[in-house]
């Protein structure tokens, strides 16, 4: 239940008074409710739980994390494994 693979919002529409979206999980499409992430736009990535987006992914933070860790591995290549 808690293994949330992020999905990409490909279409936003309204259904039964709720803001809904078609979400792409690497080629598998599911419907999700966007009421908790009202700022979401098409193209955004979000964490989905049991049919609800609970968080939008922050691309800047994502890139910074990866950069930081790439630096660790690069330093290690230079100095050899510890």
């Amino acid at each position: 239940m808690c293994l949330g693979v992020p999905g990409k919002i490909v279409e936003i529409y309204e259904k039964g008074g709720l803001k809904m979206a078609k979400v792409d999980f690497g080629g598998i499409f599911r419907e999700a409710c966007l009421d908790y992430v009202p700022e979401a736009k098409t193209g955004d990535y979000c964490v989905i739980h049991v049919g609800f987006a609970i968080s939008l992914l922050n691309e800047k933070e994502a890139l910074e994390t990866l950069d930081l860790l790439k630096q660790i591995t690069d330093v290690e290549k230079e100095i050899g494994p510890g």
Partner: peptide, 10 residues
């Protein structure tokens, strides 16, 4: 847990 609460209350 807290993750499924927003869907359930909705």
């Amino acid at each position: 847990f807290e993750t499924t609460a927003p869907p359930n209350v909705m």
